[in-house]
Design a protein around this nucleic acid. Structure first.
Length: 495
RNA sequence: CGGGGUGUGGCUCAGCUUGGCUAGAGCGCUUGGUUCGGGACCAAGAGGUCGGAGGUUCAAAUCCUCUCACCCCGACCA
């Protein structure tokens, strides 16, 4: 196991981000195919935890999982003009099938009559099947989700944040009325908020995207936005009101109670492996990955300490008992009994992998029937004594506390890095150089102004916060043009 | 896709300017031994066609051309 140096956040934030990923063995660039990543077991285990949390909530709200083809006929993409334009540049295209060997060299064989795109998202092909499956209002609502990977041929890639292939879920639903579809859009947005805040311990702002930022082909796009430690925002998940746009494009119609034909009202919503990037950039520190217990693949690492063989058997026996008891409580416990490694090195390893709690069990601890506990997020090297008796209760309480502390810490950071601005020069200087925060400011509602602000400062409108979110205080004047503004919107640089 | 940078054992790098013995070091890895409460030590080993393909040359890690990948800054985007 190669020792991993982690650059400090202060020195080079981008390098720190990559170092944390390498040191925790979460993922690495595939190298053999531009922009693609390999998600290593520890990284995938985190994704599986996120999947489980989301999937359970999807099922509980009546959704079913399904799987649709990876390849989409090119013609499908042309059916919804705005959607096609939004994704045209970044589609990977399959033009051939089969290979042949010519003079020992592999060559392409049969050119396809109609090329296929590798799905960048599945609205089109799912629209096609919705048209087949939906005939009556009795078939609605149709509530589906698929877990899969998609491909967008990105020109600049970063592990988890932007890769050519990434993993996600995409929910697709069809409804008999716009009101019902809108209700679904918000139901799913709230599920994302719930998972972000209560599982990932990341505070988010719910909002609506501007017309300029919304999903190509949607009537409206809603999102949850999170703030990273460098002051940049990251979109955590999206939920789209597709209106009848795809219904029209794919002729998805149903007969309503009155006997009339109408196009269905659709939604789609998604959350990606990018979420792991958010986890890293919100919680982790200069010692490596920090994970909230609810998404940690390993909750507790037990490091036994011994000198003699007699001590070793005694200490291991006690450690195994503790591990078994904690596992009965549903915790994932790693008993690190590797012989060749000294305890200190094990501490560093589990720290950089983000294990929330470490228990040390040595001869002295066995004698006193206590273990030394070290939280991943405690400031000092101070350790806490926990008794063997009812250890599950103590460990459970510590893990709960860590979960709460992480959210509180992230929330405090967000509050400390959120400002209300009304002066254009203040706005400009805040975003000067690499600077960024959450800035609530007035905007006149035009795309022209939005783009002018971006041009001048690199800051973009992350969202128009929903009622009750953010720091809105009623109408005002646009920070750039002085034109009337209905409410403050959220600005930041973004990933 | 535009601008800049990088590519030498698993990792970090030296060597390249000015071509020349068998391509080195530290860490990691393997084996044996001593260790073990915050990154251990000793000894002996294994591991590289220098990102790839062409070219120049008696001779290329080193010079030239092309290409691939990665990183940074843009533009675009989950």
């Amino acid at each position: 196991m190669a020792e991993q140096h982690i650059t400090s956040r202060a020195q080079d934030y981008a390098q720190w981000y990559q170092d944390v990923i390498a040191a925790a063995q979460l993922a690495e660039p595939a190298g053999v195919v531009r922009g693609c990543m390999v998600v290593r077991p520890h990284g995938w285990a985190i994704w599986e935890k996120i999947q489980a949390e989301l999937d359970g909530r999807f099922k509980a709200t009546g959704h079913q999982n399904a799987a649709f083809p990876l390849l989409i006929p090119l013609s499908f993409l042309q059916k919804e003009a705005e959607h096609a334009e939004g994704f045209a540049m970044e589609c990977a295209v399959v033009t051939h099938a089969g290979l042949k060997s010519v003079d020992g060299k592999i060559q392409l064989k049969n050119e396809l009559e109609e090329p296929c795109v590798v799905r960048p998202t599945s609205e089109t092909i799912i629209g096609h099947f919705f048209a087949k499956w939906i005939d009556s209002y009795r078939d609605l609502p149709l509530l589906l989700n698929q877990w899969c990977s998609v491909m967008r041929w990105e020109l600049r890639t970063r592990l988890f944040l932007r890769t050519a292939e990434f993993w996600w879920q995409e929910g697709h639903t069809a409804h008999s009325s716009h009101a019902e579809a809108v209700e679904e859009v918000h139901r799913m947005l709230d599920i994302y908020r719930d998972v972000y805040q209560n599982v990932l311990a990341i505070p988010v702002v719910r909002g609506m995207k501007t017309p300029n930022e919304k999903f190509a082909g949607a009537l409206a796009t809603y999102c949850v936005e999170a703030l990273m430690q460098d002051g940049k925002a990251l979109q955590g998940a999206t939920s789209h009101d597709l209106g009848q746009n795809f219904g029209r494009a794919f002729n998805v119609t149903f007969q309503n109670k009155e006997g009339a034909r109408d196009f269905v009202w659709q939604t789609s919503w998604g959350c990606t492996t990018r979420t792991i990037g958010a986890l890293i950039m919100v919680h982790s520190d200069d010692n490596g990955l920090v994970l909230p217990p609810r998404v940690a693949p390993i909750h507790v690492a037990i490091v036994p300490i011994w000198k003699s063989d007699a001590e070793k058997s005694q200490v291991l026996e006690a450690s195994q008992k503790i591990a078994a008891e904690l596992r009965e409580d549903g915790l994932v416990v790693k008993l690190d009994d590797r012989d060749a490694m000294r305890p200190g090195e094990k501490y560093y390893e589990w720290e950089r992998k983000g294990v929330p709690l470490r228990l040390e069990v040595g001869p002295r601890d066995v004698a006193s029937a206590t273990a030394m506990a070290k939280s991943r997020i405690s400031d000092s090297k101070e350790k806490l004594k926990v008794p063997f008796e009812n250890i599950g209760v103590h460990v459970g309480a510590i893990l709960d506390a860590i979960q709460k502390q992480l959210f509180a810490r992230a929330l405090a950071f967000r509050e400390a890095n959120t400002v209300k601005l009304d002066s254009w020069s203040d706005f400009e200087s805040l975003f000067a150089d690499q600077g960024s925060k959450y800035v609530y400011a007035h905007w006149d509602g035009t795309t022209a102004t939005e783009l002018a602000i971006k041009e001048a400062t690199k800051a973009t409108i992350r969202c128009i916060p929903l009622a009750g979110e953010g720091l809105d205080d009623g109408p005002g004047k646009c920070i750039k043009t002085g034109a009337p503004s209905r409410q403050r919107v959220l600005f930041a640089k973004n990933y």
